[in-house]
C-alpha cells in the first residue's frame, strides 16, 4: 500500500496536538437522559447540543458533545446511527434517512434538498462527468448507496 509519507505525518501531528491541547469533552455523569420519546424543544438548523446542555450532560453513556452536528457530522453520522438508532429517532424518523438513503430514487438528494445547500450533499450540479473522477478516487463511498441498490440510473451505462 503506497500511503504517502505526508499523510502519516499529518495524521500523527493532528492526533498528538489533539492530545496535547485537548481539555474539552465535558465530563459525563452517570444519569441517563431519556429523550427517546422526542426532544422536548423543537430544534431548528443543525443542532449543536453543547449550546444548551451543560458540560456534564450525558446521553446513552456518551458526552453530549458527541452528537453535535458540526462540520464532520456527515462523515461520522453512520458510526453513531448504527449504535444509537433509538436516540436518532428522537428527532429523525425513517423518512428523513430515506430521503437520501433511497432504494429506487430518480432525484438526487442535492436536487431534492436544493433549498438546503448548507448540508453539502454530494452530486451537486451536473455530476455526470465528475462521478467518473470521484468514483475512481473513492469507490467505497459510492458503494454504500449504489453497490447493491439505488443504482437503476447507474445501470443504464454500467450494465
Amino acid at each position: 500500500m503506497k500511503t504517502g509519507r505526508y499523510e502519516k505525518y499529518v495524521f500523527l501531528m493532528t492526533f498528538l496536538s489533539a492530545l496535547f491541547f485537548g481539555n474539552g469533552i465535558p465530563e459525563p455523569h452517570a444519569e441517563e437522559l431519556k429523550i427517546t420519546g422526542g426532544h422536548p424543544i423543537e430544534l431548528s438548523g443543525k443542532p449543536v447540543c453543547t449550546e444548551c446542555h451543560s458540560s456534564d450532560t450525558e446521553v446513552v453513556m456518551r458526552p453530549v458533545a458527541a452528537f453535535n452536528h458540526d462540520s464532520d457530522w456527515i462523515a461520522r453520522h453512520r458510526f453513531l446511527a448504527s449504535k444509537t438508532a433509538r436516540l436518532c429517532d428522537a428527532c429523525h424518523h425513517v423518512s428523513f434517512c430515506t430521503s437520501c438513503h433511497a432504494y429506487k430514487e430518480e432525484l438526487k438528494p442535492s436536487d431534492k434538498h436544493s433549498d438546503s445547500p448548507e448540508r453539502w450533499l454530494p452530486h451537486r450540479g451536473n455530476y455526470l462527468f465528475q462521478h467518473r473522477i470521484d468514483g475512481r478516487l473513492d469507490p467505497t463511498s459510492c458503494f454504500r448507496c449504489h453497490g447493491r441498490q439505488n443504482n437503476e440510473v447507474c445501470r443504464r451505462c454500467h450494465k
Binding site: 500500500m1 495524521f11 493532528t14 492526533f15 496536538s17 489533539a18 491541547f21 485537548g22 481539555n23 474539552g24 469533552i25 453543547t50 458533545a65 458527541a66 453535535n68 458540526d70 462540520s71 464532520d72 462523515a75 461520522r76 468514483g135 469507490p139 467505497t140 459510492c142 458503494f143 449504489h146 453497490g147 447493491r148 441498490q149 443504482n151 447507474c154 445501470r155 454500467h158 450494465k159
Partner: peptide, 30 residues
Amino acid sequence: RVPLQRVVISGLYARSDYRNAFSARTLSAF
C-alpha cells in the same frame, strides 16, 4: 475527534480492499 471550547479537531483512517468489499454487488462499476 476532540471537541474543545474553541476548536474541533478530528481525524480519519480508513482502509479498504476492493475484492473483499465489493464482492457482493449488483453494479458492474465496482
